[in-house]
Design a protein around this nucleic acid. Structure first.
Length: 548
RNA sequence: GGCGGCGUAGCUCAGCUGGUGAGAGCGCUCGACUCAUAAUCGAGAGGUCGGCAGUUCGAGUCUGCCCGCCGCUACCA
């Protein structure tokens, strides 16, 4: 547990629209909790991600609004940056796939895989718009669905009956750009030879332990069905171009976004190292076999991170494969999956405008969809905050500090000899932190938070048993010992809650006169320390705070 | 359609390789306390573990079928 290098790799949010609560709960918050814990535990954490600025949805939106894709990208990238700032997502680097560095690293991966024989050109047939003089992505072809007769089905799927389609299945296909009838034309593309990795990948997957059941079975099942070579270039103008020497497949090709977005984990690590003035520093997380890497993603991304990205890494050579891919399921809203495009689930920004960051972090962390889809209503959020966070933890802090202020003139009292109840509470607190640490290390973050809350409950029970408000009238020494014991427990909990509730935990330490930096474990608060001004850690929420 | 996951108390969820009378939080009931953000602490009620069949001395936990929800199905990423 001393000084391991831990890469916390987090899904790259798509700069095509606001992200909603489901994205936050699925990837960004759990990653942040995990990273914050490991920093406290003394490990060297590198937590990276960035905005994914390429891909078809961005160009679709740009076309709809009549602006350049970059306008869309800038708008949402900036919104994401505000979200992370407000919520305290503790990136070591949050960048984007639009940087020169990312292009260079992508080219390096592309060239190396090509050199190793894993990238080859192939010819395919694809729809071409003769008026716009360009090839059409599936989503740009529309027509009548052969299954249900819906007239505006897209080339990739029918929005009416939900079936997967190939564009050539469409009856009466037309271009969404010009309305012209598209024609099939041959086009050449580079393919990644996933088939070459099938056996190696399967062996590796089957040797994984501790992975979530749905993640491992998904990846193994997918691989067992047989890996097919996959196109990694597209006929597009928005995206990373091919390395300049790759001219054999013709003009107008871009690297397909799924191939380069995951490379962002590597390019961001290198960018971080460069900015730090130690260009080779990234290697400690990528080439040292003792380093660990965790990829925080949603369940829709499992194949890309547990199958395709490992293939890319194996083909490149010399880089670490994922230690774990703790993919989360979905947060649903009244049983419905969040969707930025369909307006299900409000944006992260909507919530940060109405809630204290730690309150939102608590409600989400207590509901993380680690095993199942988890339904989260606005009422649940209010309930979690008022009846758990405020009632159990916020109130505990307030009652202890208020009594101390009242009876000991706002200074930490000197303890007398500890009794069995005092000692057993402190042992309970220590054991709680140890249990919590184990759970977080297994990426069981909900359980970790619950463990910390149980410690808070134990402190509440201790106070009810020792009744310092009564002894204050008769036995000042005993009262001082009890409050000292309770204050030590609060200090410990300011560490235990730090990964989940960084803002309020820091405020509490401020009240207790404690300084950073922290380490995982119980902190000592010296007798005589003057308490800062005492104010509630969290405000109780109005029933209708989340009602428009 | 195929593959994977899930379906457990009113609500949100834990239950690893099958084994003393099925768990937690919240809500609810009763009691204690009154320092504290009407907060806290204790006790209790509450479930045919989606349905049917099977394997087993014994299944929430294994097998088959069925129903429902979610994801993937390789041009969303």
């Amino acid at each position: 547990m001393s000084g391991k290098h831990i890469l916390v790799a987090v899904a790259w949010p798509y700069a095509s629209g606001s992200r909603h609560l489901g994205h936050l709960a699925g990837a960004y918050l759990p990653a942040d909790i995990f990273a914050r814990y490991h920093r406290l535990a003394g490990n060297r954490v590198l937590m990276v991600s960035g905005s994914d600025v390429h891909g078809t949805p961005i160009t679709v939106r740009a076309d709809q609004e009549g602006v350049e894709p970059q306008v869309i990208v800038d708008r949402y990238h900036n919104e994401f940056l505000r979200n992370w700032e407000e919520l305290g997502i503790s990136w070591d680097l949050y960048t984007s796939t639009g940087t020169d560095n990312h292009r260079e690293v992508t080219w390096d991966v592309f060239r190396t895989l090509h050199e190793h024989g894993y990238i080859v050109p192939k010819t395919t047939q694809q729809f071409y718009d003769p008026e716009a003089e360009r090839f059409l992505p599936d989503r740009y072809v529309e027509g009548t669905c052969p299954h249900c007769g819906y007239e505006s089905a897209r080339g990739d799927q029918c929005d009416h009956c939900g079936r997967q389609l190939d564009p050539e299945d469409l009856v009466d296909p037309r271009s969404r750009i010009t309305g012209a009838t598209p024609v099939m034309r041959p086009t050449e593309h580079y393919f990644l030879r996933l088939s070459a990795f099938e056996d190696r990948l399967l062996d590796w997957l089957q040797s994984r332990t501790g992975w979530r059941r749905h993640v491992l079975n998904m990846a193994i099942g997918f691989t067992r069905e047989g890996l097919q070579d996959r196109a990694i270039t597209r006929d597009l103008t928005w995206g990373i171009p091919l390395p300049p020497e790759f001219t054999e497949i013709g003009e107008g090709k871009r690297i397909y976004v799924w191939f380069e977005a995951v490379i962002g984990y590597l390019s961001a690590s290198k960018e971080w190292a460069q900015r730090r003035g130690e260009p080779d520093a990234w290697q400690a997380w990528w080439t040292d076999p003792d380093a660990e890497s965790y990829y925080f993603i949603g369940k829709d991304n499992i194949v890309f991170h547990a199958v395709i990205w490992p293939c890319q890494l194996m083909g490149y050579g010399g880089l670490n494969l994922p230690t774990d891919v703790p993919a989360n399921q979905y947060v649903t809203f009244k049983g419905e999956k969040g969707s930025a495009s369909r307006g299900v689930g409000r944006s992260i920004s909507w919530y940060t405008e109405r809630l204290q960051p730690d309150a939102l972090r608590y409600a989400l962390a207590a509901n993380l969809p680690e095993q199942n889809d988890t339904d989260l209503s606005d009422g649940d959020i209010v309930r979690r905050v008022n009846e758990e966070l405020v009632a159990t933890w916020g109130n505990l802090v307030n009652r202890v500090l208020s009594m101390t202020a009242k009876n000991f003139d706002g200074a930490v009292p000197e303890p007398g000899e500890l009794t069995d109840v005092d000692r057993s509470l402190l042992e309970r607190v220590d054991r709680g932190l140890e249990d919590e640490a184990r759970m977080i290390e297994k990426v069981e973050l909900r359980a970790g938070l619950r463990t910390a809350m149980e410690v808070a409950q134990a402190v509440n029970a201790y106070l009810n048993a020792t009744e310092p408000w009564k002894t204050a009238k008769s036995d000042r020494a005993r009262t001082g010992t009890v409050l000292w014991t309770a204050i030590q427990s609060l200090a410990a909990l300011s560490v235990g809650f730090e990964p989940y509730l960084p803002f309020s935990s820091a405020r509490l330490r401020g009240m207790l006169g404690l300084d950073e930096p922290l380490r995982w474990g119980r902190l000592d608060v010296a007798p005589g320390t003057r308490l800062g001004s005492i104010e509630p850690l969290f405000g109780k929420l109005d029933e209708d705070v989340l009602t428009d």
